[in-house]
């Protein structure tokens, strides 16, 4: 008869026994390298950033004085810096709202009606632009929005150039050309972040069970009532999840307004320019804390709305 157990045959068996008796050893072995990386290098960097924001730049020597002060944060509240923050927030809100509206029909169609190959095509059609080169996409809009570019050409050849002229002559958002106006910056933001809105929205819409829609219809709801009382409330967490991306990404971006826009500054641009040419790392760090705080508030609200389950 064979025995009730086999002897350990070598190191592999003995190590397996050790991991079995003390699962924590395996856990520690698995987690040590990534924790060193993310916990020490990355979190350490964020901590260093936070620390720097409490230092100040000596205005005479141009050197960083490593002493605790709130002076740098106070600088955020000057007129010009406040307008940068406000402008960024307005832009992020506008982009989020517009993305939601543009994304909805795509997400709704893909979730409700597309089947089989068409569904796969829709999915790829959203996923590829999501992942493909950010810079290439921004560049594409430089071509499109240029004064001599395709938008002007289409407007001229369809005799709708009056519309373009009217849009560009709007106060504040207009400008010399699309490429050098708030309208242009806004369009590119919407384009670049749109897929981030579509995917979570589609996922949330797909999770609304068809039986529930049938139940609503069965109870006498019209298609419109079903949509507003059943579909929308259930899909809302997905929409909020998508808005986390569009909002956060707009808050931190500094490339798009640098390439397409009227050279008005945004938080991301301020951070970049302050640390680079100005060498004012403390103020750059303080600026960087602003989107972190805004996103923390946003994420807390989103978590309350159940958006995390939709991520």
């Amino acid at each position: 008869m064979t025995p009730a157990s086999f002897p350990a045959r070598g190191l592999a068996d003995r190590l397996t026994t050790l991991f079995w008796r003390h699962p924590r050893i395996l856990l520690v072995l698995l987690l040590t390298p990534p924790l060193l990386w993310l916990g020490v290098v990355y979190l350490g960097s964020l901590a260093a950033l936070l620390l720097q924001s409490f230092y100040a730049l000596d205005s005479f020597s141009g050197l960083i004085v490593p002493e605790f002060t709130l002076k740098t944060y106070a600088q955020l509240f000057t007129q010009s810096n406040l307008s940068i923050i406000l402008r960024t927030l307005l832009m992020a809100s506008a982009v989020t709202a517009a993305s939601t509206i543009i994304a909805f029909p795509i997400a709704y169609y893909a979730a409700r009606y597309a089947k089989g190959r068409l569904k796969a095509a829709f999915y790829l059609g959203v996923m590829l632009p999501l992942w493909s080169s950010y810079l290439v996409k921004v560049y594409a809009f430089k071509l499109i929005l240029a004064k001599e570019g395709i938008v002007t050409w289409v407007a001229t050849s369809t005799h709708t150039d009056w519309l373009l002229t009217a849009a560009l002559s709007l106060p504040y958002v207009g400008g010399n050309s699309l490429a050098t106006s708030y309208l242009g910056t806004f369009t590119v933001f919407c384009y670049v972040w749109l897929p981030y809105m579509i995917l979570p929205m589609q996922a949330a819409l797909e999770r609304v069970p068809t039986t529930m829609l049938e139940a609503a219809a069965d109870l006498g709801a019209t298609a419109r009532q079903t949509f507003w009382t059943v579909t929308m409330p259930l899909a809302l967490p997905g929409i909020i999840a998508g808005s986390i991306f569009t909002f956060s990404l707009t808050l931190g971006d500094y490339i798009i307004p640098q390439i397409i826009g009227n050279s008005a500054s945004y938080i991301g641009m301020a951070v970049y320019q302050l640390q680079g040419t100005a060498g004012n790392i403390p103020l750059a760090a303080a600026f960087a804390v602003v989107p972190i705080l805004i996103m923390l508030v946003y994420l807390t609200l989103a978590r309350k709305a159940g958006a995390f389950d939709a991520l």
Partner: peptide, 17 residues
């Protein structure tokens, strides 16, 4: 005990079960 043998130190892969 499995067939009289105390298996408290024997991991699953070495048990004849």
């Amino acid at each position: 005990r499995i067939f009289g043998e105390d298996v408290s130190a024997t991991p699953p892969h070495l048990r004849n079960v």
